[in-house]
Amino acid sequence: KKRTSIEVSVKGALESHFLKCPKPSAQEITSLADSLQLEKEVVRVWFCNRRQKEKR
């Protein structure tokens, strides 16, 4: 599967949402994915990776 490159504006939106809620529910992920026109899986993986980055 190809890597999904996420645009800067979209990254900003994800980042601000992450600061409010680092662990969104499935429903939040779905609505966020719909509003940003991304697949749910892409958003879910982005949050997983972002939480891991926070640990480092």
Score class of each variant (00 low, 15 high):
residue 3 R to C: 15
residue 12 G to Y: 11
residue 49 N to C: 09
residue 14 L to K: 01
residue 48 C to Q: 15
residue 41 E to W: 04
residue 19 L to H: 10
residue 17 H to I: 06
residue 27 Q to M: 05
residue 51 R to N: 05
residue 31 S to E: 14
residue 16 S to F: 06
residue 53 K to V: 04
residue 56 R to P: 03
residue 56 R to C: 14
residue 39 E to C: 09
residue 8 V to S: 15
residue 32 L to N: 00
residue 12 G to P: 09
residue 41 E to L: 01
residue 55 K to R: 07
residue 47 F to A: 01
residue 13 A to L: 11
residue 2 K to S: 08
residue 38 L to K: 01
residue 12 G to R: 11
residue 6 I to L: 14
residue 44 R to T: 10
residue 8 V to D: 11
residue 29 I to N: 00
residue 11 K to S: 08
residue 26 A to L: 08
residue 41 E to H: 08
residue 16 S to C: 07
residue 29 I to L: 10
residue 48 C to S: 12
residue 40 K to F: 12
residue 56 R to E: 12
residue 50 R to D: 02
residue 15 E to C: 03
residue 55 K to G: 12
residue 46 W to A: 01
residue 40 K to T: 09
residue 56 R to Y: 05
residue 29 I to Q: 02
residue 51 R to F: 05
residue 10 V to P: 04
residue 7 E to F: 06
residue 6 I to C: 08
residue 1 K to T: 07
residue 10 V to C: 06
residue 52 Q to W: 07
residue 37 Q to D: 08
residue 7 E to L: 08
residue 30 T to V: 12
residue 19 L to Q: 13
residue 45 V to I: 13
residue 20 K to W: 03
residue 40 K to R: 13
residue 29 I to T: 03
residue 45 V to G: 11
residue 50 R to M: 04
residue 12 G to D: 12
residue 9 S to H: 14
residue 25 S to W: 02
residue 6 I to A: 11
residue 22 P to L: 01
residue 55 K to P: 05
residue 1 K to W: 03
residue 28 E to Y: 03
residue 3 R to F: 12
residue 4 T to C: 06
residue 24 P to N: 01
residue 56 R to Q: 09
residue 8 V to W: 09
residue 20 K to T: 08
residue 42 V to P: 01
residue 19 L to T: 08
residue 16 S to D: 08
residue 5 S to P: 13
residue 37 Q to G: 13
residue 41 E to G: 05
residue 23 K to Y: 06
residue 13 A to T: 11
residue 43 V to S: 00
residue 13 A to P: 04
residue 5 S to I: 15
residue 47 F to W: 04
residue 22 P to G: 04
residue 14 L to I: 03
residue 56 R to W: 07
residue 13 A to E: 11
residue 1 K to E: 08
residue 41 E to A: 07
residue 4 T to G: 08
residue 32 L to S: 01
residue 36 L to I: 03
residue 1 K to I: 05
residue 9 S to E: 14
residue 36 L to M: 04
residue 18 F to I: 00
residue 38 L to W: 02
residue 22 P to D: 09
residue 45 V to D: 14
residue 21 C to Y: 04
residue 44 R to V: 05
residue 32 L to H: 02
residue 31 S to L: 13
residue 25 S to E: 04
residue 44 R to Q: 11
residue 27 Q to D: 10
residue 14 L to F: 02
residue 29 I to G: 01
residue 17 H to F: 15
residue 5 S to G: 13
residue 35 S to I: 11
residue 46 W to Q: 02
residue 56 R to F: 02
residue 9 S to W: 13
residue 23 K to G: 05
residue 4 T to R: 05
residue 28 E to D: 06
residue 19 L to W: 06
residue 48 C to K: 15
residue 23 K to W: 06
residue 28 E to I: 04
residue 36 L to R: 01
residue 40 K to N: 13
residue 10 V to S: 10
residue 15 E to N: 03
residue 25 S to K: 06
residue 27 Q to F: 06
residue 4 T to N: 12
residue 42 V to N: 06
residue 30 T to E: 13
residue 5 S to W: 06
residue 9 S to P: 11
residue 52 Q to M: 11
residue 18 F to L: 02
residue 56 R to S: 08
residue 29 I to F: 02
residue 26 A to P: 07
residue 54 E to R: 04
residue 52 Q to D: 13
residue 11 K to Q: 14
residue 2 K to E: 11
residue 41 E to R: 05
residue 12 G to N: 09
residue 54 E to P: 02
residue 33 A to Y: 00
residue 39 E to P: 07
residue 6 I to T: 10
residue 14 L to N: 03
residue 44 R to S: 10
residue 54 E to L: 06
residue 26 A to W: 10
residue 33 A to L: 00
residue 42 V to Y: 14
residue 14 L to M: 04
residue 26 A to G: 09
residue 20 K to S: 07
residue 13 A to D: 05
residue 44 R to K: 10
residue 28 E to P: 02
residue 16 S to M: 11
residue 5 S to V: 15
residue 38 L to H: 02
residue 1 K to C: 12
residue 40 K to P: 12
residue 25 S to C: 07
residue 41 E to M: 02
residue 52 Q to Y: 06
residue 25 S to D: 09
residue 54 E to F: 03
residue 31 S to P: 02
residue 20 K to F: 08
residue 2 K to Q: 11
residue 24 P to F: 00
residue 40 K to H: 15
residue 37 Q to A: 11
residue 19 L to G: 07
residue 23 K to I: 10
residue 18 F to T: 00
residue 55 K to W: 08
residue 20 K to I: 07
residue 16 S to N: 06
residue 17 H to Y: 15
residue 9 S to Y: 06
residue 24 P to D: 00
residue 31 S to D: 14
residue 4 T to Q: 10
residue 53 K to L: 08
residue 37 Q to W: 05
residue 18 F to Q: 00
residue 46 W to G: 01
residue 36 L to P: 03
residue 1 K to G: 07
residue 9 S to F: 05
residue 47 F to V: 02
residue 15 E to M: 03
residue 31 S to Y: 13
residue 15 E to D: 03
residue 47 F to D: 02
residue 2 K to D: 13
residue 24 P to M: 03
residue 13 A to F: 12
residue 6 I to K: 15
residue 25 S to M: 04
residue 3 R to P: 09
residue 11 K to C: 07
residue 36 L to C: 05
residue 29 I to Y: 03
residue 47 F to Q: 00
residue 20 K to H: 04
residue 30 T to K: 13
residue 20 K to Y: 05
residue 28 E to H: 01
residue 32 L to T: 00
residue 50 R to W: 01
residue 43 V to I: 08
residue 52 Q to E: 15
residue 54 E to M: 05
residue 18 F to D: 01
residue 34 D to Y: 15
residue 21 C to I: 04
residue 25 S to H: 04
residue 41 E to V: 03
residue 36 L to F: 06
residue 36 L to G: 01
residue 9 S to D: 15
residue 41 E to Y: 04
residue 10 V to R: 06
residue 18 F to M: 00
residue 51 R to L: 14
residue 34 D to E: 12
residue 24 P to L: 01
residue 48 C to T: 10
residue 7 E to T: 15
residue 44 R to C: 04
residue 10 V to G: 06
residue 52 Q to A: 13
residue 3 R to W: 06
residue 26 A to T: 12
residue 30 T to G: 10
residue 6 I to N: 10
residue 16 S to K: 15
residue 1 K to R: 06
residue 8 V to E: 14
residue 14 L to Y: 03
residue 13 A to H: 08
residue 12 G to L: 15
residue 1 K to S: 06
residue 1 K to M: 07
residue 18 F to K: 01
residue 15 E to Y: 03
residue 15 E to A: 01
residue 54 E to A: 07
residue 31 S to K: 14
residue 22 P to F: 00
residue 39 E to V: 02
residue 15 E to W: 02
residue 8 V to M: 14
residue 43 V to L: 05
residue 35 S to Y: 10
